[in-house]
Design a protein around this nucleic acid. Sequence first.
DNA 1: AATCGGTTTCAAACCGCTTTGGATGCTTCA
DNA 2: TGAAGCATCCAAAGCGGTTTGAAACCGATT
Lengths: 363, 363
Amino acid sequence: MSLTLRREVASVGPNLKRFGCRMNLKELARKLDLSPTTVSRALNGYPEVNEATRERVAAATRRYNYQPNTRAIRLATGRAMAVGHVIPLTTRHEIVNPVFADFIAGAGETYSRNGYDMLLSVVPDDNEERAYRELKSRGTVDGVIVHAPRMDDPRIPLLTEMRVPFVVHGRATGAALPYSWVDVNNRRAFKRATEFLIDLGHRRIGLVNGLEFMDFAIRRRSGYEDALGAAGIAVDPSILASDEMTETAGFRAMQTMLALPAPPSAIVVSSMLMALGVRRAIEKNGLKLGRDISVITHDDELSYLRNGDDVPIFTATRSSVREAGRQAADMLLSIISGKAAGPIERLLEAELIIGQSTGPFKG
Amino acid sequence: MSLTLRREVASVGPNLKRFGCRMNLKELARKLDLSPTTVSRALNGYPEVNEATRERVAAATRRYNYQPNTRAIRLATGRAMAVGHVIPLTTRHEIVNPVFADFIAGAGETYSRNGYDMLLSVVPDDNEERAYRELKSRGTVDGVIVHAPRMDDPRIPLLTEMRVPFVVHGRATGAALPYSWVDVNNRRAFKRATEFLIDLGHRRIGLVNGLEFMDFAIRRRSGYEDALGAAGIAVDPSILASDEMTETAGFRAMQTMLALPAPPSAIVVSSMLMALGVRRAIEKNGLKLGRDISVITHDDELSYLRNGDDVPIFTATRSSVREAGRQAADMLLSIISGKAAGPIERLLEAELIIGQSTGPFKG
DNA sequence: AATCGGTTTCAAACCGCTTTGGATGCTTCA
DNA sequence: TGAAGCATCCAAAGCGGTTTGAAACCGATT
């Protein structure tokens, strides 16, 4: 008994030095008159510990507000308990993916719910490979989310070869090996949008797309072309535009098309921001959106770019990027934990939202 | 000699199990016939090691591509080598700060240059306090950047009391204690912008502002009011708007003002996105931007919202958020390392960029 | 009573680095 | 010549967990 008391008194360990007044496993064990081994096992749900003991441990954990030291866990287990998001900065035109913030917001929920940290590294895309290798070799993350895949994206074979668990937000046309991804069904969405316009009687339908080395842009275009093809409408390159997804680019593209001898009567647009520019061009030419010219845009449901407050302004193919973030994160965690076997693929369908920017074709 | 050889052969340690084929300090030391202590010191620039030895170590480090295990360093030193960015999600209207992505891009450069990781946590703002406390107690970060400060922001006293190094992006009117911040001189910028319009002959000048519980919005308004006051112009509440910084809100605000019996002849706007909406309203009413009505907006130089490609479209008070990110990160790291003594403050001046959206008042 | 299988528990090694408190050898000075 | 001083280097004890291999305990079986 007196021994126990002495122990109690002596239990203010030297860890105070570094970590404030945190309780650590050893002290907790001492208070419980158990070995650290048992406490550790109790906490981690190992079977070889008596239920009664486990409850005692749980109670003490709450009572002393014990939180295991993440750094120690990481060292001991070799797991990083963190996932990385690499943001490539295109060196030429330093564009930060506008979709990024909302995707992160979705993924972040999942991570914190599972005790994982989210690590961001901003990387000039000329040494992206080195960045991934370092992430791996420094062991700071257990897995990675790949953003903004391009056609034949080199990151996919790279990460596969390095055996880093990863999930791609989007897909990469031309990838040889299977890999895990979460993506919107861009092809079907744009096919559907185009069909909708065709059903409204439009035959001359333009496309204002993102840069077509981006995978999603390729798919959107092919959906658009499929719908036209199915309706027996030839694709006319003069009403196809592909540029960065900015307001200005949307405006410029639309201006050019409207200046044609035979301007389109309807347009499919790849992003809300571009659609704002498209609308401006339309209005600048004295036309009325939805009456003189129809516009369907893709809407990622970015929080700072809502499609109207209550009623949608633009008719849109809608798919929440934030939801994609949640799903990608879930997927990555289950791959990391080994729960998932092979590569997982998740195709999200976009909704077609009818707004005020579309209307029937009038000769 | 043969001893050395045996050692070489035996040197494939058990660490292979966990960390792939990483070389660790002990092995490196063995190859060099030195103790781990000396190698560690050589690498960390301690004085008590011979220059020749230091060079040998450096050479071996390169040769074997040795990278110290971050997890071990973190545990041994108690430093996290990481900084946290907390992104509060307003539970009511889940807006992710649109400025955020670009700020991060700037800050990230600084972090990776200094070997720090950037940790993101997305936090519903109803339990923000708990999130900060946990960040501290789990010891996952050495410091924090505070985003989007509000008036009397509770995070500032909280972090101060918890003794977590932090830097605020922006300021918080009403904070009792001094703290470190990086901010644009919003007041002067908007004063300057308003003066510019006054100099052009405008007397009826509106303000389309962000939500006025945000600190920057308060300051912008006061700059605007100062300029009016100095020119002897009374502030008219009917041409003041304050709302979320979206295109739609900008449009709505401008529509309302234009419908007034005496609409303003010039407007100061708080963000590019709002300015897009303002412009739309102006054009919708058959007016010409810069001729019939003048607009100055604040431009954060967001990468996906450039103010025109070559020549600026909007006259703007311009200040790079990315640069603010870089500076805030620098500041935080120097606080963490103890190089900086007290709180540091950095006020960035916005440039006034003359674009095509402003012109002289014509009766 | 001795043995056995199963359940609980523990001591000690380990993860890879830092850091403390000496050792060692060499120079210098009384 | 011996002590002091200095420049280098090292063994070992940490950081706070996990994990291995073995021990203790228990009731049941022989």
